[in-house]
Amino acid sequence: MTSESLRDTYGEELKKLGSIHKEIVVLDADLSSSTKTASFGKEFPDRFFNMGISEQSMVSAAAGLALSGKKVFASTFAVFLMRTYEQLRQSICYNNVSANFVVTHAGITVGEDGATHQIVEDVGIMAGLPNMKVTVPVDSIETRSVIDYLVEKGSGPNYVRLSREKFPVLNEPDYQFRPGKSVTFLDGSDITIIGMGVMVSFALKAAEVLRGRGISARVINMSSIKPIDRGAVLKAARDTGKIVTVEEHSIYNGLGSRVAEIVSEEYPVKVARLGMNDSFGKSGKSWELFEYFHMGVDDMVKTAETCFREEPKYENIS
């Protein structure tokens, strides 16, 4: 599998769309060379606002620009956008303006910078905001398609979570993102692994190992966290009876929680959640950290196998 940078793709796509859509404006908070909005800024200096290390002012200004008819993209590291929760809540979501917050360096794949910069709570925080939509692109192709979608058809507030690391390319080149629509990368009948972000590529590897052990695993990329593909979750519950969720995020309030909510409301089945378990990250190489926090391919295989072999604790009531 080749790997490509999601944030490089974001920067390139923004620059490309900027020449077609003159209403696009971009804001950053002194991280444009890392979030990759700098290339837009170089090409369209009049429509690029580097607000300095002032995230609160950036978010409220984004609201004012959106209220004045601009298509707004604002970027910083995921962790730093969180300090503007209340600006997002009131200036952005309560006013229900079309502003897109495309953040980079989310999750533990920030690596060496360590726990202070590795946010694993952001998806839950953002998805809890009324009107806010949350997307976690799995690869560069999906990143490009998400940005295209937001420019062409997007409305209201959006949170898009990108990484520092390059991620394996999983989608076909002609893939088109749609909110609330998941992609099944691999079909299976014994268990379903629902993943978010880079964990989907691990899930595909885990599925290969599981196949060798006689377990047929379905693998779903749930990039649209809000709205979520409720139908695909329930179909997985009905078809395979057991679900494992995998996320580079806290298992509390992220993908796993949302999947568990859906099945417990309509078709209760066992859901095993793999991700960060109420802990901060730490410094290290990104790929070492997945092993360290028991979120790697081996852990995924073990979790899925245990889950599959375990007797159901309760009969489905539907």
Partner: peptide
Amino acid sequence: EASTGSLGQGIGIAVGMALAGKL
């Protein structure tokens, strides 16, 4: 023009409106 109530935000919204006006 904008919903407000949590202090310190409306002035930032106004900055955004003024930036758009210039643009």
